[in-house]
């Protein structure tokens, strides 16, 4: 059973506190949604968990192992897969090779096993038909799918998703929701940052709301969405739209 434990994470950018004593625990097969206004520190939280950023204080523990001092690539090999909010494809490689890098490096697979993992990741994200295209030629939405494909090809036990649903049509969003539900069902622990709250609540077991780097609410989705603090930071607008949408 994979368990991710985040304890007392703290990080500052200059005078600005972007992560202020963030703690939570996430078990395998569970999904956590992260919401909060722009600049609340959502992506920073993901970066602290993935190792792209180091915290000033606090720890990240994976399966009882403290990974706080580990580099991003090491954490990936230990099972933390991530997507980037602004896609970062390997532009000169093909879509398939993008996934293959992840399967080989993050997944530690070779040859046929790597080919199979990369191919499966493309099947899962609907990118199979672009397999031999250069990734640099993909439009934005497919680049987002490629972020997910690459994260999946590493064979993660913890999956960190950063706004991969934005810009999708309703049917496309449906597919993405089902994919994530499937992954959670397969035993992955999922953390998903998303502004499209109605999509999130379909998938996640719990919701965490951040504002100015602090956790202002965490728990069962409807309770979090109903809490006064959460409604206040959203000024009662963006969030309700999300629920209604």
């Amino acid at each position: 059973m994979t368990t991710l434990v985040v304890d007392g994470l703290r990080r500052r950018f200059g005078p600005l506190l972007v992560a202020d004593d963030i703690s939570f625990r996430l078990d395998a097969g569970r999904a956590l949604g992260v919401v909060g206004p722009n600049g609340a520190g959502k992506s920073t939280l993901l970066n602290l968990i993935s190792g792209a950023l180091r915290p000033e204080a606090g720890t990240v523990t994976l399966d009882g192992r403290d990974v706080t001092a580990r580099s991003a690539d090491e954490r990936c090999r230990l099972g933390i897969g991530r997507t980037h909010q602004v896609p970062r494809p390997f532009t000169d490689l093909t879509v398939f090779e993008n996934a293959l890098v992840a399967a080989g490096a993050g997944g530690g697979l070779r040859r046929t096993a790597a080919y199979r993992a990369a191919s499966a990741a493309l099947d899962r994200t609907g990118l199979r038909k672009y397999a031999n295209e250069r990734a640099g030629r993909l439009p934005l939405l497919d680049r987002k799918r490629l972020e997910l494909a690459r994260a999946l090809a590493t064979g993660p036990s913890v999956l960190l998703l950063d706004e991969i649903g934005g810009g999708l049509t309703e049917p496309e969003l449906r597919i993405l929701i089902d994919t994530v539900i499937g992954l959670r069902g397969a035993g992955l622990a999922v953390i998903w940052i998303e502004h499209i709250v109605h999509a999130l609540v379909e998938v996640v077991d719990e919701l965490l709301c951040l504002a100015t780097g602090r956790v202002i609410a965490h728990g069962e989705p409807s309770a979090v969405l109903g809490s006064r603090e959460v409604r206040e930071v959203y000024l009662g607008e963006e969030l309700e739209e999300g629920i209604a949408g």
């Binding site: 990936c76 980037h84 970062r88 532009t91 890098v101 080989g104 490096a105 993050g106 530690g108």
Partner: peptide, 20 residues
């Protein structure tokens, strides 16, 4: 293959597990 990935985007390569 990993080298080519590093050249294209070192941060993404690290996130994909490459020992950059």
């Amino acid at each position: 293959l990993q080298l080519t990935a590093i050249r294209d985007d070192g941060i993404a390569a690290e996130a994909a597990g490459v020992r950059v």
